[in-house]
Design a protein around this nucleic acid. Structure first.
Lengths: 218, 218
DNA sequence: CATAAGAAACATGCTTGACTGTTTGCAAAA
DNA sequence: TTTTGCAAACAGTCAAGCATGTTTCTTATG
C-alpha cells in the first residue's frame, strides 16, 4: 500500500502493523461493539495474525485502551486545528455547535458508548482514559474561550454553555440508538440549541459579514 | 425470607422467583455491567439455582430483555403518577427537570448505558425494547403537554424542549463516568438548564386553579 | 378427606465452543 | 549471529445451552 518499496525497516513494519491493529480495533468497536471486539477478530480485521497482535499489545484491555486513546488524541488534534482557524476568522457559535455535532456523530461518540460502560466498572481502564479525555476538553476550551473573549461573556458562564452543549450532543447520539432514521428530529433539536447558544453570546454581530457556513444546517 | 416453610401456591413461588431473578439482573447490570451479567452470576445474586433461571427464561438475552422492559415499565408507572400529581397541582418546569434528573440518575440511565450498545448491534434486542421505550415517552409527554396547555405554549415547541431536556440529562449522566465526584458541576448545569426552560414558559406564575385532573391525557 | 397421579418449579451435571494469555517456531532485518 | 517481527500451536478458563433428576404443589377420584 504505502510502502515506498519492498524493503522496509523494522520500525516501518512495526508501526504499520500497530496502526492497522488500532484502526481495526476502532472499526470493530464501532461496527460490532466491545463484546464482539475479540483479539482473533481484531487480528482478522487488520489482516495480521493473532501472534502479531500479542507481540504488540500484551493484553486485550491494552490494545483497546491504546486504540481509544489514539482515536481521542487524533480528534483532539483536529479540534485544535479547528480552534486555530475559528479564532483566526472569528467564527460563529452556530459553527461550533455544528462542528461538535459532526465530530461526535462521526463515530466518536458511538465508539465512546461502547467503552464507557467498561470504564465505569474497570478502574484501570478508566484511569488510562482520563488524561486523554482531559486533553480533549482542553481543545474544546480553546474554542469557547475565544468566543467568550470576543463577545465579552463571562468565561465561567461560557464553560457552562460549552459543557451543556457537549452533554446535549451526547444525549442526542445516545437517542439515535432507539430512535434511528429521523435526521429531521435531530436537526430540529440542534437548531433550537443553536438559537439558545446565540442568546448567550449577544454581541456577536462584530464579525457578522463573514457568515459563510461550511456545514449546511438542514 | 418471608416464607418460612409456609405452603405457597405454584404461582406465588413462580412469581417470586421470576421477580428475584429480574431484580438481580438489573442490580448486576448496574453494579457490574452487561458483560459481567452472566447467567450463573444472576442466579447467585438472586439466591436461586441456575436451573431455576433456565426454567423461567429460555436464554440469557431473554432474561436481560425482560428485566429491562420490566424496569422501564415500572419507571413509566411512576412517571404517570408524577404526571397526575403534577397536573393536579400545576407544578413548575423546575420540578420537571429535577424529577427527570433524579429519575435518570437513580440507576435508570446507568442501566440504559449498559444495554444501549447491545441494542445498537442486536436488532432483536432492539426490537424488544422499542415499544417499551415508546410507552415511557408517552408518559413524559403527559407531563410536558400539561405544562404547555397551562402556559399556552406551542406543543411542538414544548416537545423540542422536552426532548432537549432528556438529551441533556442523558449526556450529563454519561459524563459522570469519566468525571465523577463533582456534584456541584452537575447541579450548576441543571440550574442553567432550568433557567433556560423557564424562559420557554414565560407566563408560568399563574396559579393552578384551572387544572383539571381527568380530562388531560390519553 | 385421603391419596395417588401428574404437572409445574427447581436443582445438578455434562458438552461444546470460544476467548485469553503463553510458548514455541521461523524468517527477515540489523 | 543476534535481535526483532511475526506466525502457529497449546493450555486453561468459563459461559451457554441442554438433559436429566428431584422436590413441591394441584387435582381427580374413591
Amino acid at each position: 500500500m504505502s510502502g515506498t518499496g519492498k524493503r522496509r525497516s523494522q520500525k516501518e513494519r512495526s508501526a504499520e502493523t500497530s496502526t492497522r491493529l488500532m484502526n481495526a480495533t476502532i472499526d470493530l468497536l464501532h461496527d460490532r461493539g466491545l463484546a464482539r471486539t475479540t483479539t482473533p477478530e481484531i487480528a482478522r480485521q487488520a489482516g495480521v495474525s493473532r501472534g502479531a497482535l500479542t507481540h504488540h499489545f500484551t493484553t486485550r484491555e491494552a490494545i483497546i485502551s491504546v486504540s481509544v486513546a489514539d482515536m481521542l488524541s487524533k480528534t483532539t488534534r483536529d479540534l485544535h486545528r479547528f480552534a486555530e482557524d475559528f479564532i483566526a476568522r472569528g467564527g460563529s457559535s452556530d459553527e461550533i455547535v455544528d462542528y461538535i455535532w459532526q465530530m461526535m456523530d462521526d463515530r466518536l461518540f458511538y465508539v465512546t458508548m461502547e467503552y464507557l460502560p467498561e470504564a465505569r466498572h474497570n478502574p484501570d481502564f478508566r484511569a488510562d482514559l482520563i488524561p486523554t479525555v482531559r486533553d480533549f476538553h482542553a481543545g474544546l476550551d480553546a474554542i469557547w474561550t475565544a468566543l467568550a473573549a470576543r463577545t465579552g461573556v463571562d468565561p465561567d458562564h461560557t464553560r457552562i454553555v460549552m459543557n451543556a452543549t457537549m452533554c446535549l450532543v451526547r444525549g442526542m447520539i445516545s437517542q439515535t440508538v432507539l430512535r434511528p432514521n429521523d435526521p429531521a428530529y435531530y436537526q430540529e433539536m440542534l437548531a433550537f440549541w443553536k438559537q439558545q447558544v446565540r442568546q448567550q453570546f449577544p454581541i456577536e454581530a462584530a464579525s457578522a459579514q463573514d457568515s459563510r457556513r461550511k456545514a449546511g444546517t438542514r
